[in-house]
């Protein structure tokens, strides 16, 4: 059963369309990540679901109950949602425990043990209960905010870029803790983010929002491997795009003849190759094409190598991802092999 159903949702601010006929459904107990650049309308979508803003058109059903629809607007406090704002938004005048228990009926707000259970769920020690919010690090604040959102057992948890303000090391760790807590609570969640790795790693499905419209809703793998168009391909990850001619399950392009993914169009196409699909082999071994190394950015565990094809005049630079210990030198001649089937887009 879908815990959240959105149909035909639209919203405009001062005649500027922010959301346009958005349809989305989130299955109970799963998380859907809304991925979009800034200004794509993703936060507005979340705020409409929360009830902070009123939709112009369309319906929002939470747990089967109509929260927004023609003539219906349930106020936020009656939607039974959990909301985790950017940077947590902990109440600065309350202790961690009082923050966590804020949404519970008055008699339960004294229950210290309940607060400690909820903190444990979010991966925080019980000793944090008496602390003031400002004594916590950013990551810890996020976890308290999650515990607070989960406390009243909401039908749906909304996460508004909760990790954006954290530094990268803390981000991964906090993300995992939050994902684990949501899973343990069996919560249905909607996550809004502009961070591709975050969306791909956390969402059971990822919905990409572009200029107020949902362009694709898919499992992370499918979205990454088979995006609907070239722009989307570049948005969800690094992409090498070359032109080619597709026939009978293969495509001819400057990198040789490559295998096509199933159900791909024939004819004049644009070929999507992910940098990690490009393998470098010593010259002389069998290769799809030859190239010269033009530049190397070394990251440690891996490296990004920019290549220029040797046999094609005026060919664009390609970029390949190689494991750190296989990193070539600048100026070196290498063979290129493309691994796995590729996706193509028909050229309009």
């Amino acid at each position: 059963m879908a815990a959240l159903e959105i149909a035909g949702l639209a919203k405009a601010f001062e005649h500027h369309r922010v959301l346009d006929s958005v349809d989305l459904s989130v299955a109970a107990g799963t998380m859907v990540a809304i991925l979009g650049a800034s200004g794509s309308g993703k936060t507005t979508l979340l705020r409409l679901v929360a009830g902070f803003e009123r939709a112009d058109a369309g319906t929002i059903r939470i747990g089967g109950e109509t929260a927004s629809g023609p003539g219906v607007h349930l106020p936020p406090e009656r939607r039974r949602i959990g909301y985790m704002a950017q940077e947590g938004a902990l109440f600065p005048h309350l202790s961690v425990a009082d923050n966590v228990l804020f949404g519970l009926p008055r008699p339960q707000r004294r229950d210290r043990r309940r607060a400690e259970e909820l903190l444990a769920l979010a991966g925080l020690p019980a000793s944090y209960a008496g602390r003031a919010p400002h004594e916590l690090s950013g990551g810890e604040q996020s976890r308290v905010a999650l515990a607070r959102a989960l406390a009243p057992k909401p039908r749906l948890v909304l996460l508004d870029e909760p990790f954006a303000a954290l530094d990268p090391g803390l981000r991964t760790e906090t993300r995992q803790a939050v994902a684990a807590a949501l899973l343990a609570a069996g919560a249905t969640a909607l996550l809004v983010t502009h961070d591709q790795p975050e969306a791909l790693s956390m969402g059971r499905e990822v919905a990409v929002l572009r200029e107020g419209r949902l362009v694709q809703v898919a499992r992370p793998e499918a979205l990454y491997r088979r995006p609907l168009d070239a722009q989307l391909a570049r948005f969800v990850g690094e992409a090498v795009l070359v032109s080619g001619q597709a026939t009978d399950g293969t495509v001819r392009c400057s990198l040789g003849r490559l295998a096509l993914a199933p159900d791909m169009p024939d004819g004049e196409v644009e070929v999507l190759i992910r940098p990690e699909q490009i393998r470098l082999v010593p010259p002389g071994e069998s290769a799809d094409a030859l190239a010269r190394v033009n530049g190397v950015t070394f990251y440690g565990h891996d490296a990004s190598v920019s290549l220029v094809l040797s046999e094609v005049a005026g060919a664009p630079e390609l970029s390949a991802r190689v494991a750190g210990h296989m990193c070539p030198r600048i100026g070196e001649e290498v063979g290129i092999r493309v691994e796995g089937p590729v996706t193509v887009f028909r050229v309009a």
Binding site: A50, G51, F52, P75, P76, E77, R78, R79, R80, I81, G82, Y83, A85, Q86, E87, A89, F91, P92, H93, L94, F102, G103, A145, R148, A149, P152, L158
Partner: peptide, 27 residues
């Protein structure tokens, strides 16, 4: 004051007056 505080209070079941008394006024 961060408006997210009032919004969070609303999402946790407080009405307009409840979030004023429990969240805004103390601050």
């Amino acid at each position: 004051m961060d408006p997210a505080l009032e919004e969070t209070a609303r999402s946790l079941g407080q009405g307009a007056s409840g979030s004023f008394l429990r969240v805004v006024l103390p601050q």
